[in-house]
């Protein structure tokens, strides 16, 4: 399989629940059988995994300033 078949549509629907481990055992196996033989869907699943990693690193690139850290420590009530 190389193009967009009806089963690929179902696979597209299952992309997020699959990666989030929300599928039932049967659904998961069904998805895996399809992914093994369908390069079209396989690429898109691998892309999603890379994208999630990339989003996380892009969105976590700003660090807290040492000034803010010092301010927070000064808010402590105990001594």
């Amino acid at each position: 399989m190389s193009g967009f078949e009806p089963i690929c549509e179902k696979c597209e629907e299952r992309l997020q629940p699959y990666l989030d481990r929300e599928l039932s055992e049967t659904e998961r196996l069904e998805a895996e059988v399809h992914l093994e033989e369908c390069e079209y869907c396989g690429k898109r699943y691998r892309f999603e995994i890379s994208l999630r990693r990339y989003v996380r690193s892009a969105c976590c690139s700003e660090e807290m300033s040492p000034e803010l850290k010092a301010k927070l420590a000064n808010l402590r009530i105990a001594d």
């Binding site: 597209e12 629907e13 992309l15 997020q16 690429k43 898109r44 892309f47 999603e48 994208l51």
Partner: peptide, 9 residues
Amino acid sequence: MEEGDYFLY
């Protein structure tokens, strides 16, 4: 705007 999950790829 909300497309399917393969849209961006």
